[in-house]
Protein backbone atom coordinates (compact mmCIF):
# COMPACT_ATOMS: atom_id res chain seq x y z
CA UNK A 1 0.00 0.00 0.00
CA UNK A 2 2.84 2.34 0.89
CA UNK A 3 4.52 1.70 -2.45
CA UNK A 4 1.31 2.38 -4.32
CA UNK A 5 0.80 5.65 -2.50
CA UNK A 6 4.41 6.63 -3.09
CA UNK A 7 3.78 6.64 -6.81
CA UNK A 8 0.90 9.10 -6.34
CA UNK A 9 2.51 11.43 -3.90
CA UNK A 10 5.66 13.18 -4.88
CA UNK A 11 8.75 12.91 -2.77
CA UNK A 12 8.95 16.68 -2.56
CA UNK A 13 5.46 16.85 -1.07
CA UNK A 14 6.42 14.29 1.57
CA UNK A 15 9.62 16.13 2.41
CA UNK A 16 7.75 19.42 2.70
CA UNK A 17 5.21 17.81 5.01
CA UNK A 18 7.99 16.31 7.15
CA UNK A 19 9.61 19.75 7.47
CA UNK A 20 6.27 21.29 8.43
CA UNK A 21 5.53 18.63 11.06
CA UNK A 22 9.01 18.79 12.61
CA UNK A 23 8.93 22.60 12.71
CA UNK A 24 5.44 22.52 14.29
CA UNK A 25 6.65 20.03 16.90
CA UNK A 26 9.70 22.07 17.83
CA UNK A 27 7.71 25.31 17.99
CA UNK A 28 5.09 23.79 20.27
CA UNK A 29 7.18 21.67 22.62
CA UNK A 30 6.65 22.72 26.19
CA UNK A 31 10.38 22.51 26.84
CA UNK A 32 13.26 22.95 24.39
CA UNK A 33 15.97 20.27 24.27
CA UNK A 34 18.35 22.73 25.96
CA UNK A 35 15.92 23.32 28.82
CA UNK A 36 15.46 19.58 29.26
CA UNK A 37 19.21 19.04 29.32
CA UNK A 38 19.51 21.66 32.03
CA UNK A 39 16.74 20.07 34.10
CA UNK A 40 17.83 16.47 33.50
CA UNK A 41 19.17 15.73 36.97
CA UNK A 42 17.03 18.10 39.02
CA UNK A 43 15.14 15.72 41.26
CA UNK A 44 12.58 16.24 43.99
CA UNK A 45 14.11 15.94 47.45
CA UNK A 46 13.01 13.25 49.89
CA UNK A 47 11.10 15.94 51.76
CA UNK A 48 9.33 17.10 48.57
CA UNK A 49 8.34 13.49 47.91
CA UNK A 50 7.03 13.02 51.45
CA UNK A 51 5.01 16.26 51.12
CA UNK A 52 3.57 15.18 47.79
CA UNK A 53 2.75 11.72 49.15
CA UNK A 54 0.94 13.23 52.11
CA UNK A 55 -1.29 15.29 49.81
CA UNK A 56 -4.87 14.13 49.65
CA UNK A 57 -5.94 12.06 46.68
CA UNK A 58 -8.21 14.93 45.58
CA UNK A 59 -5.43 17.55 45.75
CA UNK A 60 -3.02 15.34 43.79
CA UNK A 61 -5.64 14.61 41.14
CA UNK A 62 -6.26 18.33 40.79
CA UNK A 63 -2.53 19.02 40.46
CA UNK A 64 -2.20 16.39 37.71
CA UNK A 65 -5.22 17.69 35.78
CA UNK A 66 -3.71 21.18 35.85
CA UNK A 67 -0.42 19.85 34.43
CA UNK A 68 -2.21 17.80 31.77
CA UNK A 69 -4.49 20.69 30.85
CA UNK A 70 -1.50 22.95 30.38
CA UNK A 71 0.24 20.39 28.16
CA UNK A 72 -2.90 19.90 26.05
CA UNK A 73 -2.80 23.55 24.98
CA UNK A 74 0.56 22.88 23.32
CA UNK A 75 -0.86 19.82 21.55
CA UNK A 76 -3.75 21.91 20.18
CA UNK A 77 -1.22 24.44 18.91
CA UNK A 78 0.81 21.61 17.35
CA UNK A 79 -2.29 20.26 15.59
CA UNK A 80 -3.16 23.72 14.24
CA UNK A 81 0.26 24.01 12.62
CA UNK A 82 0.29 20.58 10.97
CA UNK A 83 -0.51 21.04 7.27
CA UNK A 84 -3.99 19.80 6.49
CA UNK A 85 -5.34 19.67 10.03
CA UNK A 86 -7.12 23.02 9.84
CA UNK A 87 -8.57 22.04 6.43
CA UNK A 88 -10.62 19.35 8.18
CA UNK A 89 -14.08 20.32 9.39
CA UNK A 90 -14.15 21.64 12.93
CA UNK A 91 -16.14 18.67 14.16
CA UNK A 92 -13.33 16.35 13.04
CA UNK A 93 -10.63 18.60 14.50
CA UNK A 94 -12.32 18.35 17.89
CA UNK A 95 -12.80 14.57 17.61
CA UNK A 96 -9.14 14.02 16.70
CA UNK A 97 -7.90 16.21 19.53
CA UNK A 98 -10.16 14.66 22.13
CA UNK A 99 -9.29 11.13 21.07
CA UNK A 100 -5.60 11.63 20.40
CA UNK A 101 -4.18 14.27 22.70
CA UNK A 102 -3.34 11.96 25.60
CA UNK A 103 -1.51 9.59 23.23
CA UNK A 104 0.39 12.58 21.84
CA UNK A 105 1.27 13.64 25.39
CA UNK A 106 2.48 10.13 26.23
CA UNK A 107 4.84 10.17 23.25
CA UNK A 108 5.95 13.73 24.00
CA UNK A 109 6.63 12.64 27.59
CA UNK A 110 9.71 10.66 26.57
CA UNK A 111 11.60 13.88 25.89
CA UNK A 112 11.20 14.54 29.62
CA UNK A 113 11.68 10.97 30.81
CA UNK A 114 14.94 9.76 32.31
CA UNK A 115 15.17 5.97 31.90
CA UNK A 116 18.43 5.87 33.90
CA UNK A 117 16.65 6.63 37.17
CA UNK A 118 13.07 6.00 36.02
CA UNK A 119 11.87 9.57 36.59
CA UNK A 120 9.72 12.00 34.64
CA UNK A 121 9.58 15.79 34.61
CA UNK A 122 6.57 16.88 36.65
CA UNK A 123 5.93 20.51 37.58
CA UNK A 124 9.55 21.57 37.14
CA UNK A 125 11.50 18.66 38.65
CA UNK A 126 12.01 14.96 37.99
CA UNK A 127 9.84 12.51 39.94
CA UNK A 128 9.62 8.73 40.23
CA UNK A 129 6.50 6.56 40.56
CA UNK A 130 6.41 6.99 44.36
CA UNK A 131 5.61 10.68 43.85
CA UNK A 132 2.17 9.78 42.47
CA UNK A 133 1.21 7.35 45.20
CA UNK A 134 -1.59 9.49 46.65
CA UNK A 135 -3.46 9.41 43.32
CA UNK A 136 -4.46 5.86 44.15
CA UNK A 137 -3.80 4.80 40.55
CA UNK A 138 -0.70 2.61 40.87
CA UNK A 139 -1.60 0.49 37.83
CA UNK A 140 -2.04 3.57 35.63
CA UNK A 141 1.16 5.22 36.85
CA UNK A 142 3.15 1.99 36.48
CA UNK A 143 1.86 1.55 32.92
CA UNK A 144 2.85 5.13 32.04
CA UNK A 145 6.38 4.60 33.39
CA UNK A 146 6.62 1.26 31.59
CA UNK A 147 5.69 3.00 28.34
CA UNK A 148 8.28 5.69 29.09
CA UNK A 149 11.01 3.06 29.50
CA UNK A 150 9.86 1.16 26.39
CA UNK A 151 9.77 4.24 24.19
CA UNK A 152 13.09 5.53 25.52
CA UNK A 153 14.72 2.27 24.47
CA UNK A 154 13.93 3.25 20.87
CA UNK A 155 15.85 6.51 21.32
CA UNK A 156 13.49 8.42 19.05
CA UNK A 157 14.83 11.59 17.47
CA UNK A 158 12.83 14.83 17.61
CA UNK A 159 11.97 14.27 13.92
CA UNK A 160 10.59 10.81 14.70
CA UNK A 161 8.64 12.09 17.72
CA UNK A 162 7.18 14.89 15.59
CA UNK A 163 6.03 12.57 12.81
CA UNK A 164 4.82 9.81 15.13
CA UNK A 165 2.72 12.23 17.20
CA UNK A 166 1.25 13.77 14.03
CA UNK A 167 0.39 10.29 12.70
CA UNK A 168 -1.29 9.33 15.98
CA UNK A 169 -3.23 12.59 16.07
CA UNK A 170 -4.48 12.00 12.52
CA UNK A 171 -5.88 8.52 13.19
CA UNK A 172 -8.74 7.88 10.75
CA UNK A 173 -10.34 5.20 12.95
CA UNK A 174 -11.62 7.58 15.65
CA UNK A 175 -15.39 7.16 16.11
CA UNK A 176 -17.76 9.79 14.65
CA UNK A 177 -15.33 11.31 12.14
CA UNK A 178 -17.24 12.74 9.20
CA UNK A 179 -14.27 12.85 6.79
CA UNK A 180 -12.23 9.82 7.78
CA UNK A 181 -10.95 9.37 4.17
CA UNK A 182 -9.41 12.81 4.29
CA UNK A 183 -7.79 11.99 7.66
CA UNK A 184 -6.56 8.66 6.29
CA UNK A 185 -4.85 10.41 3.37
CA UNK A 186 -3.09 12.79 5.72
CA UNK A 187 -2.00 9.98 8.03
CA UNK A 188 -0.71 7.92 5.10
CA UNK A 189 1.47 10.82 4.01
CA UNK A 190 2.79 11.34 7.55
CA UNK A 191 3.67 7.65 7.93
CA UNK A 192 5.43 7.82 4.56
CA UNK A 193 7.38 10.81 5.83
CA UNK A 194 8.26 8.87 8.99
CA UNK A 195 9.39 5.91 6.93
CA UNK A 196 11.61 8.21 4.83
CA UNK A 197 13.03 9.77 7.97
CA UNK A 198 13.90 6.33 9.36
CA UNK A 199 15.50 5.22 6.09
CA UNK A 200 17.49 8.43 5.91
CA UNK A 201 18.92 8.07 9.41
CA UNK A 202 19.25 4.44 10.31
CA UNK A 203 17.92 2.38 7.43
CA UNK A 204 16.56 -0.03 10.02
CA UNK A 205 13.67 -1.79 8.30
CA UNK A 206 11.66 -2.83 11.34
CA UNK A 207 12.12 0.43 13.24
CA UNK A 208 8.74 1.71 12.04
CA UNK A 209 6.96 -1.45 13.20
CA UNK A 210 8.78 -1.25 16.54
CA UNK A 211 7.49 2.32 16.94
CA UNK A 212 3.95 1.35 15.93
CA UNK A 213 4.03 -1.66 18.29
CA UNK A 214 3.84 0.78 21.25
CA UNK A 215 0.33 1.88 20.25
CA UNK A 216 -1.58 -0.89 22.10
CA UNK A 217 0.06 0.00 25.45
CA UNK A 218 -0.77 3.65 24.79
CA UNK A 219 -4.39 2.74 24.13
CA UNK A 220 -4.50 0.71 27.35
CA UNK A 221 -3.17 3.70 29.28
CA UNK A 222 -5.77 6.03 27.73
CA UNK A 223 -8.61 3.65 28.61
CA UNK A 224 -7.25 3.18 32.12
CA UNK A 225 -7.10 6.96 32.56
CA UNK A 226 -10.75 7.29 31.51
CA UNK A 227 -11.76 4.47 33.91
CA UNK A 228 -9.91 6.14 36.79
CA UNK A 229 -11.43 9.51 35.95
CA UNK A 230 -14.92 8.05 35.82
CA UNK A 231 -14.42 6.42 39.23
CA UNK A 232 -12.94 9.60 40.69
CA UNK A 233 -15.93 11.61 39.44
CA UNK A 234 -18.27 9.21 41.18
CA UNK A 235 -16.43 9.38 44.49
CA UNK A 236 -15.49 13.10 44.45
CA UNK A 237 -18.00 14.84 42.15
CA UNK A 238 -17.42 18.26 43.70
CA UNK A 239 -13.64 18.07 43.17
CA UNK A 240 -14.07 16.87 39.58
CA UNK A 241 -16.36 19.83 38.87
CA UNK A 242 -13.44 22.11 39.69
CA UNK A 243 -10.97 20.39 37.36
CA UNK A 244 -9.59 22.75 34.68
CA UNK A 245 -12.30 23.39 32.05
CA UNK A 246 -10.05 22.24 29.17
CA UNK A 247 -9.33 18.92 30.90
CA UNK A 248 -13.06 18.41 31.46
CA UNK A 249 -13.86 19.25 27.83
CA UNK A 250 -11.33 16.81 26.49
CA UNK A 251 -11.96 13.87 28.79
CA UNK A 252 -15.62 14.10 29.80
CA UNK A 253 -17.45 11.87 27.38
Amino acid sequence: EGGHLASDVSRIEIERLAQNVVKSHLETSQYTSEELKRLAWILYSQEDIRNMQSKSCEAMWHECTVQISNAIQYVVEFAKRVDGFMDLCQNDQIILLKAGCLEVLLIRMIRAFNPLNNTVLFAGKYAGVQMFKSLGCDDLINAIFELGRNLCRLQLSDEEIALFTAAVLLSPDRPWLSESKKVQKLQDKIYLALQHEIQKKSGNEDRLSKIISKLPLMKTICNLHLDKLEFFRLVHPEVATNFPPLYKEVFNS
Binding site: Q73, V76, E77, M86, I94, L97, P245, L246, E249, V250
Partner: peptide, 20 residues
Amino acid sequence: KEKHKILHRLLQDSSSPVDL
Protein backbone atom coordinates in the same frame (compact mmCIF):
# COMPACT_ATOMS: atom_id res chain seq x y z
CA LYS B 1 -20.47 23.72 20.02
CA GLU B 2 -21.16 24.87 23.58
CA LYS B 3 -19.80 21.55 24.87
CA HIS B 4 -16.35 22.24 23.41
CA LYS B 5 -16.15 25.99 23.61
CA ILE B 6 -12.56 26.12 24.87
CA LEU B 7 -11.30 23.78 22.16
CA HIS B 8 -13.21 25.82 19.57
CA ARG B 9 -11.69 28.99 20.89
CA LEU B 10 -8.16 27.54 20.98
CA LEU B 11 -8.57 26.27 17.42
CA GLN B 12 -9.85 29.59 16.10
CA ASP B 13 -7.59 31.84 18.12
CA SER B 14 -4.51 32.98 16.25
CA SER B 15 -3.00 34.34 19.45
CA SER B 16 -3.06 31.07 21.33
CA PRO B 17 -2.20 30.91 25.04
CA VAL B 18 1.00 29.07 24.18
CA ASP B 19 3.87 31.42 24.77
CA LEU B 20 6.01 30.94 21.69
